[in-house]
Nucleic acid binder design. Structure first.
Lengths: 251, 251
DNA sequence: TGTAAACCATTACGTAACGTTAATGTCAAT
DNA sequence: ATTGACATTAACGTTACGTAATGGTTTACA
């Protein structure tokens, strides 16, 4: 089967300009030229274009593609197989980005807090592993493996409706806490109500609730600058206030 | 936390040139300038850079990113959510490419033959959407939303090793089915083994396996010309053969 | 058989998003 | 006081095409 430039362009989903450029660049020359100077592409060129587009989709520069395809020891099968693993790697990278966006959405909803580093995790595949591991370690050190694992599983599998519920709860908690903080007494009724809401909020993530863990996590809000920053966004000193209130609540 | 240009560049995994360019382009200006003219970035800028890189990763031109971020009614949450769906679409595109490469490898091994059109399928995203949507619709009609949704989720989350496993399984299934078909008896041991392999293959995508669904889908292979074509590429009449074998298998 | 629409060609300037180099000033530590 | 890492601006280079402008060719059809 032979194709003119337009036919091939449509088949492959590229512009004619691209094909002319590839010709000029000597990356893909037409199989033959018609009597009036038209470019005619044959089977060989189609297959080569397929290869080119494969590599292009991977972000390989045209110059490099040229080298790859013209190298003496170019084994199509090996090339495709390594190509496949490159694509799979790219997908992993993409999955990371997706996870990161999901995380950002949850962060915005106030469900979690992201550190500056975490904010770029999706872009830095290298750093990710270590980061994640370390972050996990921290939390694990304080509350044990099981709770974290189960809470993770719970976050992952949360349903749409649950999400909305959680969202509403977050707003209520924030508002209550803000008002209680203004009054200034951690033992006040409102402050204790905030504690209850906070407990409910935690139970979205925890399989088992315990007073010790509740106290532990609010203490962590105070100790860890990232969490402190988050609660202090509501009002400066709020993290400490919440911890004090929870200490009374759990007494 | 404040960052100099180099610190921020390392944190975010971009070059300092890029940050200076973004400044010049008025896409991301430093929060303040030191007495000696150094760029100093603060929290606000970090968050903005994160947004920028998100969109950049999607291939959105900087000019457009500028518009998006500066638009009056820019709702971060909505933006992130639409962003997420864009990423998911991108992954679908990538999955298609991966499938295409896998196909090419098998084509090279002489197992299948690809038409010129098929050779470029992975690159034509426009066709994908319609296809995918139509495909989804049909399957939903027959098995209900839930199974499809869950199976999608499963495909999405498939890992590298799992993919290799699936690929190997596909090859084995094809070979077994081909041989069994040649013998001609849907009740034969080999045909029943093909059914078992097919079940295993399905379980890669299905959360819950049931005999009814198994029979249903093989019937669909017969009813839907696209699927029929696929299985008949192995051998003409193969779709019917598989359905008959599965009817016995599930009896 | 004429003619418009569709398709082919080359030439050439435009662009996006930085990379790179050069020339020079600043900071921290020895 | 020097050294090396880091900061600045200025300006030209690069990649992979897009987008005219200008003109010849093929095809459809009235």
């Amino acid at each position: 089967m032979e194709y003119t430039i337009n036919k091939l362009a449509k088949l492959a989903g590229v512009s004619t300009r691209t094909l002319r450029y590839y010709d000029e660049f000597e990356l893909l020359s037409p199989g033959r030229i018609s009597s009036k100077g038209y470019r005619i592409y044959g089977q060989k060129e189609i297959d080569r274009l397929q290869q080119i587009l494969f590599y292009r989709a991977l972000g390989v520069p045209l110059k490099a593609i040229k080298n790859i395809l013209s190298s003496e020891n170019f084994d199509e099968q090996v090339a495709l197989e390594s190509h496949l693993s490159a694509l799979l790697a790219k997908r992993e990278q993409l999955d990371l980005l997706i996870a990161n966006v999901g995380k950002s959405i949850r962060a915005m909803k106030g469900e979690i807090i992201m550190s500056d580093q975490e904010k770029f995790e999706g872009f830095l595949k290298k750093l990710v592993d270590d980061n994640e591991r370390q972050h996990g370690k921290e939390a694990r050190g304080k509350f044990g493996d099981e709770i974290v694992d189960r809470s993770n599983a719970k976050v992952m599998g949360i349903s749409k409706e649950k999400y909305a519920e959680l969202d509403a709860l977050t707003v209520e908690l924030t508002e209550t806490l803000k008002t209680a903080f203004k009054q200034g007494d951690p033992a006040s009724e409102l402050a204790q109500k905030a504690c209850e809401l906070h407990k409910k909020w935690l139970c979205f993530f925890w399989e088992d609730y315990s007073k010790e863990a509740h106290i532990g996590i609010t203490q962590m809000y105070v100790d860890d600058p990232r969490f402190t920053a988050y609660y202090d966004k509501i009002a400066v000193g709020c993290a400490v206030f919440l911890r004090d209130a929870v200490l009374i609540y759990c007494k």
